[in-house]
Nucleic acid binder design. Structure first.
Length: 478
DNA sequence: CCACACTTGAC
DNA sequence: TCAAGTGTG
């Protein structure tokens, strides 16, 4: 009988283009998948029902794909540092393979598991990267330091050749009946629903779970919207973005597959203009990777501000303002539309993520970490590196040597939702108003009250002056 | 140490 | 035009 290799899926919920899984299959025909529902993660207070629902749906389709290949995906619901070694020992596995992750929690957990496996002589893959195109140890400045500015990172990163997608798991031997019983005795359970885990999401998901849906989404995007990406991605009322964020967060699609698709789109592009649009999307993929490398190299990013002036910033942290922001009743139409989209869909257009983040930090003077956490509680694609990177960028507390960037909600509406289409969609009480009023937000108190729409909770001009003052103060003190 | 450059902006 | 001072080569 062949040696068993357990492949531990974490944020790589697919059998195609999976580097660790492909390596496992090359070493043995008997490869069985395992996923551990981790209470350390699921019991945190920053978990979104939409995200768990997407994850469970993707696990369902992953189970089907394993079954089609002739093997199984086993489910555990327990502390992984105990449950993974326990299962491997019980099944007499030769090895447990998995793909490496940049998050501080994952790295600590994995080190503990490696110690336990080593003790039992069970093999593992050291630092096998899968969800990024280059190892964060490989992208360095001339003085061997990690990059802290995007553009030089991009120049270096984009000049390096990228790996092609790796082989799909076409067939594998699974557990025997007797082994299945051993697995069950070692904690393997049926896949629970999101509801079983205490997460309720009743609406439709804005992104369909599973490998097939992600692949389809990629092909559809690369066949059309990517060619006008540079401009169209900015309009929140337009479907101009890839909507691949959740699939990329959970590795429901492989990043090499995505990159390959950009190269093919470039080859097929008929004009320089189209090529520029595709390259703009490539740059967004590089941003994702920049933030993952940053998290790996500077794990303190997860704890708070990166730049000194923001380490002890005198935020107001007004609870009522925060509630108004969360619920989309700040009295600023574009901000409220965006927050309501987030609450209803578990997803927000990227342009609006920047607008509401700027508003929370620069206008309401609330610590970006409050907003960062709220996003994690709602987003289907919520990811530590990407979310933290975005929030620190908006707060001006991150890796951006540029001056303060304060978004004006009215100018943003004017540029990106000039007909008020997005606002009307998400703030129904304003639906009958002329675009001019929606965009400028200059709606009289009388009219606001008539439709039940709140007065602005703060004055943008006043608040941005206040923010700048405090920033200058902090800068001189540090 | 110098020269150059720096996601998405505002006025 | 001012962002505004620092990362990077």
């Amino acid at each position: 009988m062949s040696d068993l290799i357990l492949f531990w899926h974490r944020r790589d919920l697919r059998i195609s283009d999976n580097t660790g899984l492909a390596t496992a299959r090359k070493q043995s025909p008997k490869v069985v998948g395992v996923f551990c529902l981790d209470p350390n993660i699921l019991e945190r207070d920053d978990i979104a029902p939409a995200r768990v629902t997407y994850m469970i749906g993707s696990l369902q389709s992953l189970q089907k794909r394993y079954a089609q290949a002739g093997s199984q995906l086993l489910i555990l619901h327990a502390e992984p540092t105990q449950a993974i070694p326990k299962l491997a020992i019980a099944l007499k596995a030769k090895a447990v393979f998995w793909n490496w992750d940049v998050e501080p929690y994952s790295q600590e957990r994995d080190r503990t598991i490696i110690e336990a496996l080593k003790e039992k002589g069970i093999q593992f893959l050291e630092k096998n990267w899968d969800q990024i195109l280059h190892s964060p140890d490989d992208i360095r400045t001339g003085s061997q330091q990690p990059y802290t500015v995007y553009t030089p990172f991009w120049k270096n990163w984009s000049s390096k050749p990228k790996a092609k997608p790796v082989e799909t798991l076409e067939n594998a031997e699974g557990l025997t009946k007797a082994e299945k019983e051993i697995a069950e005795a070692s904690g393997v359970i049926e896949l629970p629903s999101a509801k079983d885990l205490g997460f309720h999401w009743d609406g439709e998901l804005v992104i369909t779970p599973g490998e097939a849906a992600a692949q389809e989404r990629l092909e559809e995007f690369c066949a059309s919207a990517v060619n006008e990406y540079q401009e169209q991605r900015n309009f929140p009322a337009v479907e101009g973005t890839s909507k691949l964020s959740a699939a990329l967060k959970f590795g429901v699609i492989g990043i090499r597959t995505v990159w390959q698709a950009t190269l093919e789109a470039l080859e097929n592009s008929r004009s320089d203009e189209t090529a520029t649009n595709i390259r703009t999307w490539q740059q967004e993929l590089a941003w994702r990777e920049f933030y993952q490398h940053a998290m790996y190299n500077f794990p303190q990013l997860a704890e708070g501000a990166f730049r000194d002036p923001f380490k002890n910033f005198p935020w107001e942290n007004n609870e009522e303002y925060f509630q108004a922001w969360c619920e989309g009743r700040t009295g600023y139409p574009i901000v409220d539309a965006a927050m309501r989209q987030l609450n209803e869909l578990g997803w927000m257009h990227n342009r609006c993520r920047m607008i509401v983040a700027s508003f929370l930090t620069k206008d309401l003077l609330i610590n970006f970490q409050w907003g960062e956490k709220y996003f994690m509680q709602k987003l289907i694609d919520g990811d530590l590196s990407a979310n933290n990177g975005g929030w620190q960028w908006s707060a001006s507390s991150g890796m951006d040597p540029k001056p303060l960037r304060i978004f004006n909600p009215a100018s943003q509406s004017q540029k990106f939702d000039f007909e008020g289409e997005y606002i009307r969609q998400w703030v129904p009480e304003l639906r009958s108003m002329d675009a001019e009023y929606l965009v400028t937000g200059k709606i009289s108190p009388l009219e606001r009250h008539a439709v039940g729409y709140p007065d602005p909770i703060v004055d943008h001009n006043k608040q941005q002056r206040l923010f700048k003052e405090r920033y200058q103060q902090q800068k001189s003190q540090t």
